[in-house]
Amino acid sequence: MTSQNRLIQWTAHAFLMLIALACILPFLLLFMSSIADEQAILRDGYSLFPAEFSDAAYRYLARESTQLIRAYGITVLITVVGTSVGLAITAMLAYPLSQKAFGPRKPLTFIVFFTILFNGGLVPTYLVYTQYFDMKNTIWALIVPNLLMSGFNILLMRTFFLTSVPDAVIESAGLDGAGQFRTFVSIVLPLSTPILATVGLFQGIGYWNDWFNGVIFITNPAYFSIQNILNRILMDIQFLSSSNMSSHVGDAMSSIPGTTVRMAIAVIGVVPILIAYPFFQKYFVKGIMIGAVKG
């Protein structure tokens, strides 16, 4: 290894370590606050080294454990189904948009892009899905709207196909007699694992963290996703702080869970993704290897 390479390595490590710390410390603070004693936080503020510990926050959440487990199930289901279907549709739309041979690619790209700029807003979207498709209080309402794919992901993938999959590879596949669809499935996709992993990751996180569709389409608790349940508590506090309701409904105040519970909620919501994340990382690396092999 040359000295210059070593210098680069060290600079990179120093820079990234600093940023990593900036990302970890707040999360650590979050976690420590979730296992700290509520009164101690209110009295002394948040601390990385709380004076008193307590498992009250997790016990509070454990009270709803049956519902939480069910909600985890819903979330996993919608994440898996939504991400895989969304990824397939996204890739299928993005690929032709990247190919010069595909006549209407420019107008269609614009049509996709237009959806990023303009949206009909909440009410019309709600009307479409409840009146024409009758999705209210169904699992579909958590999968189909907003997230199946976004124009952003499509354009991202299109650009990737455009720049990272050499035209020559596609042409030679065509000369070998492979149909366009087969070229796409057996040549283009394997070359594109990094972007598939990236978009898959975004979609996966999107589904996992989505609470909004639950708020507008779901009133039946049987279909609450995990973020829906967790966010309900945060939304309640939000509502109290922007309406003048609290002093009229004193009971509402007593139902606000304390800071530690809010932090525990965040921890519970994030940890499963952290566990699942290495799975995606595998594909990042795979992409490199195939990229290296292909030439």
Partner: peptide
């Protein structure tokens, strides 16, 4: 962002 009762409880 906290309940006044909790603040009171915490002193």
């Amino acid at each position: 962002r906290d309940s006044g009762l909790e603040l009171m409880k915490a002193g």
